[in-house]
Design a protein around this nucleic acid. Structure first.
Lengths: 195, 195
DNA sequence: TGACTTACGTAGTAGGCGCTACATAAGTGT
DNA sequence: ACACTTATGTAGCGCCTACTACGTAAGTCA
């Protein structure tokens, strides 16, 4: 049996570069030419390794979740839900203002954008935002069951509210808001906590 | 002097149709073909009447501000700033959920998106969002001068916070949030009011 | 060494994009 | 009636997009 010529680039590093381009330009704004230039490869190598543009974007989304959105899971794992939400909001501010990454959130960019062929991409982004919101809701339900959160509180509404704030913060960050400004927003958002 | 052949379409109605397309698809997602089909005209008529795609979009933005975002000015004109902010948030919820219009906010769509040639469009949208935020800030400063708002409150931070919530609500609306859900978010956001 | 398998670089493909040249139609002035 | 001005419809421009056919390079096996 023959093994074949090994690829001359690192797939993970190339994916990281692709993620950076998608992050800065959005799905439709990132052209294959932009991507291949950043990844240091030619189009046929991209298609052989990742399938097509849409498949590459989904893999970039997965990598984004693993490497950049890990603080969400960590935050929600805090012993107290209120501390968890506070950590989530402050972590969002910090992440959005991180100078080593593009401003803004990959899941919030490109809400409308683009023709009908990108509908499934919008649906994918919407589903991932909904999943994050659900994670918050479940944590709040747990807090309610444990007695930390009042019985007459509404976990779904609270989760939607905090999710709304983080998404709005992503837009503020993309418009140039500083880390301190974003943290200030996070602090004010916490005042809606029912205590 | 000769007057020339009169145009056979209504310019304002055509602009309204263009606004609807931009609203649903975003600047880059709306192709000239989409626009001319919705407006009921051919490309040369579009370019003769509106200039080019970018100029058409700016005119659609102006019309959007006049016809759809008027409630913002009305809300902020309320005698009490707190009532004004409440009206602003509730009006946003109502406007975003209006079934006769596309979901979401024209100013929030297409944050990232697209190649370098649309940079000026993003800047324009960012500037208009900043203008809305400034209007809130000025209203809060006025309230502070009148004694309604505490002297140690931060009008700029509060304005940024409320602006953040409305922008986040636009994303929630684009993802399918109902009017009641949006109004619930608006109510919770008001809990950050310093009293 | 030579067959086999896989990756690579070059150079393209068809299709959609924003935009327009050109001939014609539809008005008003003298 | 004729010149003049402006709008319209057809048809197509050059450019960029995502994607790929093809010949070659680079490795592992018997």
């Amino acid at each position: 049996m023959a093994i074949g010529r090994p690829r001359t680039f690192n797939k993970e590093e190339a994916l990281d570069q692709a993620l950076d381009v998608f992050w800065r330009k959005g799905y439709e704004g990132a052209s294959i030419c932009d991507l291949t230039a950043a990844m240091g490869i030619n189009p046929p190598s991209l298609y052989a390794a990742f399938g097509n543009k849409e498949a590459l974007f989904r893999q970039a989304l997965d990598r984004y979740s693993e490497t950049r959105a890990g603080f969400v899971r960590e935050a929600l794992a805090a012993p107290k839900a209120r501390e968890g939400i506070a950590a989530l909001l402050r972590g969002t501010a910090q992440s959005l203002a991180d100078k080593s990454s593009p401003r803004g959130c990959l899941l919030v960019q490109g809400i409308a954008g683009a023709g009908d062929h990108a509908q499934c991409i919008r649906d994918e982004l919407s589903a991932r935002r909904a999943a994050a919101q659900k994670a918050i809701r479940e944590r709040l339900k747990q807090a309610q069951a444990e007695g930390e959160l009042a019985a007459d509180a509404d976990p779904a509404a609270l989760a939607r509210y905090f999710s709304t704030v983080t998404q709005g913060m992503a837009i503020q960050a993309a418009s140039g808001a500083s880390r301190k400004e974003l943290e200030r927003i996070a602090d004010m958002a916490l005042r809606a906590w029912p205590d």
